[in-house]
């Protein structure tokens, strides 16, 4: 998963090396804790490639910040292409309420509009193979986890899915398979199945940035097996250390960088 969940309660466990009798939830929580840096900023480049080779490139300044144990905020300010430059997306993810507040700033209308993630993950993010819900934090209490047998002994394989049919409809996936390295708890691959149970997409983490005990995927590829589309995300100038002011994640900052 490109973005992490605030599972800070188990952050200390993440550093522990030997594992014994772990259940699936533990593994998932340790994996999430690896990515739980309190501040992350960087430049996001999203490249969408159609089967015929046509490409679109979208760039944005990206900021995210832990706001306590129960809330995480994200801000995307788009810088390319020119016809979306200035557009911005603000997300407040609430872990306990199990919902998100989201606003979009539309510069052409000079207007901030509240939006809400509907079914199927809220639709595809700017025409890419990532859904809006793929781009926000997860409330792990909405998911159930099961350990699957692994062909490769280097990986834990987890089956992850929404706890109820309604949640699965909202997420847009019937289930996911997460491939997590046993040695460092990094999530390297996720396979997504659509609501009919058919193979839909595959997310591959190609590079990670590690610092201060945290890890963040910096190069990801999402392959849509049903359409042949490919979407790649590249994060550059990643920083865990920049203290991002709280006010970045307000409607005030949607209109400005």
């Amino acid at each position: 998963m490109i973005l992490r969940t605030a599972a800070l309660l188990l952050a200390a466990l993440a550093a522990a090396a030997p594992l014994a009798a772990q259940d699936a939830a533990d593994i998932s929580a340790r994996t999430d804790a690896r990515g739980a840096a309190p501040n992350i900023s960087g430049l996001l480049t999203l490249t969408i490639t159609a089967p015929n080779g046509d490409q679109r490139v979208i760039s944005a300044d990206s900021y995210q910040k832990e706001r306590g144990e129960e809330r995480e905020d994200r801000l995307f300010v788009f810088t390319h292409p020119p016809n979306v430059r200035g557009m911005a997306l603000l997300v407040h993810s609430y872990m306990e309420q199990g919902d998100d507040s989201m606003w979009i700033y539309l510069p052409a209308m000079d207007r901030i509009k509240r939006v809400d993630l509907g079914s199927s993950g809220g639709g595809y993010f700017l025409g890419s193979d990532f859904t809006f819900r793929d781009m926000v934090s997860r409330d792990q209490t909405e998911y159930e986890h099961a350990l699957l047998p692994a062909d490769d002994d280097a990986y834990h394989v987890l089956e992850v899915r929404g706890r109820t049919p309604e949640l699965r409809r909202v997420f847009g996936y019937s289930r996911e398979e997460h491939f997590i390295r046993k040695d460092n708890f990094l999530r390297e691959r996720i396979v997504f199945y659509d609501l009919a149970g058919d193979l839909l997409k595959e997310l591959i983490v190609e590079e990670e940035y590690e610092a201060d005990g945290y890890a963040f995927p910096t190069r990801l590829k999402m392959l849509n097996h049903q359409t042949g589309h490919v979407s790649e995300i590249l994060f550059e100038d990643i920083s865990f250390s920049a203290d991002i002011p709280d006010r970045f994640f307000t409607q005030r900052y949607l209109r400005r960088r």
Partner: peptide, 11 residues
């Protein structure tokens, strides 16, 4: 007022 409710936004 604008309210988000389970995929609906009512304003």
């Amino acid at each position: 007022a604008s309210i988000g409710l389970d995929g609906w936004v009512i304003s």
